[in-house]
């Protein structure tokens, strides 16, 4: 389906500021950074998580472990997905039991991805707490899930789509609102 860009809501400067603010919030809230781990949800959550990890390092000189979660096998809308949703690896090379986990995703919409991610985390161990970081909160939740750290709250219509584009894979840092073109 063809899509047109309706608005460019964040550029690289705004994105950079949001990252710095979120990182400060994480550091403020979690006094014991030794117990903190970051887990990014594939695909873009991983790149956001990596940037946060880097910022914590520069800000606090602390190295926080980073894990990668593929939640395909835990989705509740599984049978509605295309038949061949390629499964990628979950790579969490440390024990999450007893840790404070910051779960990272690019956009929160219905909350179903977060639900799936939490189920997946619990199968890997029992964390002391899970905090949710999303870069964009676009509203329309279908489950009682709220993020702890938000880059930007962006009220949208259901028809619209939010695209977080990151240098690491999209060559540019920006956030776009797009809409399918009516034919």
């Amino acid at each position: 389906m063809e899509e047109k860009i309706k608005a460019r809501v964040m550029d690289s400067k705004k994105i950079k500021r949001a990252f710095q603010r979120i990182t400060t919030e994480i550091v403020e809230r979690n006094r014991d950074l030794n117990e903190l781990v970051i887990v990014g949800i594939r695909t873009r959550g991983v790149f956001i998580a990596k940037r946060i990890q880097q910022l914590i390092k520069t800000m606090e000189e602390a190295s926080v472990p980073l894990g990668i979660l593929d939640i395909t096998l835990y989705r509740d809308d599984f049978s509605e997905l295309e038949p061949q949703h390629i499964i990628k690896k979950t790579e969490i090379p440390f024990d999450i039991a007893g840790k404070d986990v910051v779960l990272v995703d690019d956009v929160i919409f219905t909350g179903r991805t977060t639900r799936a991610a939490m189920d997946s985390l619990f199968d890997l161990g029992r964390p002391r707490s899970i905090q949710l970081l999303v870069f964009i909160d676009r509203g329309h939740r279908e489950l009682p899930i709220q993020p702890d750290y938000i880059g930007k709250f962006l009220p949208t219509s259901r028809r619209e789509k939010v695209k977080v584009r990151l240098k690491e894979i999209d060559k540019i840092d920006e956030v776009l609102i797009t809409e399918p073109v009516k034919i």
């Binding site: 096998l73 061949q84 990628k88 690896k89 979950t90 790579e91 997946s120 199968d123 890997l124």
Partner: peptide
């Protein structure tokens, strides 16, 4: 090749403490 790639990801599931996914 698709089967082999997919199997590569499933290898990780069997190495977990809870060796089960709900798919």
């Amino acid at each position: 090749l698709t089967v082999l790639e997919t199997a590569d990801s499933f290898l990780e599931v069997s190495s977990r403490e809870v060796k089960k996914v709900p798919v």
